[in-house]
Computed example of a mutant assay.
Amino acid sequence: MTAPAEASTAREGAQTVRVELGERSYDILVGRGLIASAGDEIARLLSGGRVAVITDDNVAKAQLPALKASLDAAGIGHVTFAVKPGEPSKRFSTFEQLCDQVLEARLERGDAIVALGGGVVGDLAGFVAASVRRGMRFIQMPTSLLAQVDSSVGGKTGINSRHGKNLIGAFYQPGLVIADTAALDTLSPREFRAGYAEVAKYGLIDDADFFAWLEANHREIFAGGAARDEAVAASCRAKARVVADDEFEAGNRALLNLGHTFGHALESAVDYDGARLVHGEGVAIGMRLAHAFSARLGLCPQEDVARVEAHLKTVGLPTHMKDIPGQLPPAATLLDIIAQDKKVTRGALTFILTRGIGRSFVEKGVDPQEVLSFLTEELVEQI
């Protein structure tokens, strides 16, 4: 991934990013106003099928009318199911309800589930698509920055368990991703900042030049200029390459979890209370923790830790556990949550560590006592 990249192949004014997975390859369309023309794209994919649009109550108000009009114009039959916004909807009861609704609507295997919303909707709707009739067609229409640059691409779907985040689900690729960047205009500043954490992640993983480009262009990205579309497309290109190389996270795809092991533990620790912490904020804190933990192990220069923290703070993201309102559980409890993480293998802790900005790597068999000591020191800041 390089910083200001040339536009990909254009399709109706959009940048097109290809996810190469053989017979299951698909396109990601990135551009403004794509929801209003989505019907034609979906019609080409389905050839006469019907769709069930799964969304949430907030997105339905802002984006659903344009999508319905587009589907009607393309002659695509559709039903809509809306869930409550937020992480608590990623649970068994909501999943069961949606499966029943799709079946009651008599959608067939060749019909499609359309996820119109952020990461919660995409994960939940994708798991429904993977499960009903043992697999229906699936289209992602992400409306949050976080979903456009991360969760809508790559086929990870699922729901949360009381044991942790995203522990129940499936790898299930969409047939198309339509990322309408105009939808980002409706996000609150907090939601946009949270999504930006995932954009910064791509630079921190393996592209120091992209991180430097973000440091120089973040104001235009937040203001909605051309740099915003480029940041989304560049992030999608980065993830598409990783997914094509390692679809089922057997190797380097795990690098995409930079900051997520700590971040997911913090989300679980606050019981997914979005008033206290949303996913992207957890990732931001987690990325600073990953760099600080790496520095503690003698792997990462302290100046890189400071640089990561400075940039995340500049755009308004939290970087320390003390930035989370309210009390957190003790370090031992956080370690127990981490031990339930999907990246644990036969009880050994796996972390994404770093030797500096753009130099992340997968480290298996991390000593739990090192993690416990580190978390204990970090929690002292809260006192």
Rank of each mutant, 00 (worst) to 15 (best):
D273Q: 11
A115F: 14
V362T: 08
G347V: 10
A125P: 10
A244C: 03
V305A: 02
G117E: 07
T80D: 10
Q148C: 14
D100T: 15
D100P: 07
A200N: 06
L146P: 04
A60E: 09
A295M: 08
F95M: 04
Q369K: 11
D323H: 06
D271Q: 12
I42C: 08
R91I: 02
G286A: 08
D229L: 02
H291V: 08
L21P: 02
L266G: 06
A284P: 00
V83M: 11
L372P: 05
E108I: 10
G347E: 11
D245T: 14
T143V: 08
E12N: 15
E381W: 11
G203T: 06
G316D: 04
R241W: 07
A183T: 10
K84D: 15
G117W: 05
D207Q: 11
E363C: 13
I383M: 14
L176W: 13
D209E: 15
I76V: 10
D367K: 12
A183H: 00
A60W: 01
R276H: 06
A82P: 08
V17L: 02
D209L: 03
R24E: 12
V232A: 00
V243P: 01
T16F: 09
L184H: 00
F374V: 09
Q148K: 03
T314W: 09
R91C: 09
A240S: 13
A223I: 07
R307D: 12
T333G: 03
L375D: 13
Q15A: 06
L184N: 03
F222V: 11
V128T: 05
T9E: 12
R219K: 11
L334I: 13
V17I: 09
R134F: 06
G33Y: 04
Q148S: 09
A290N: 01
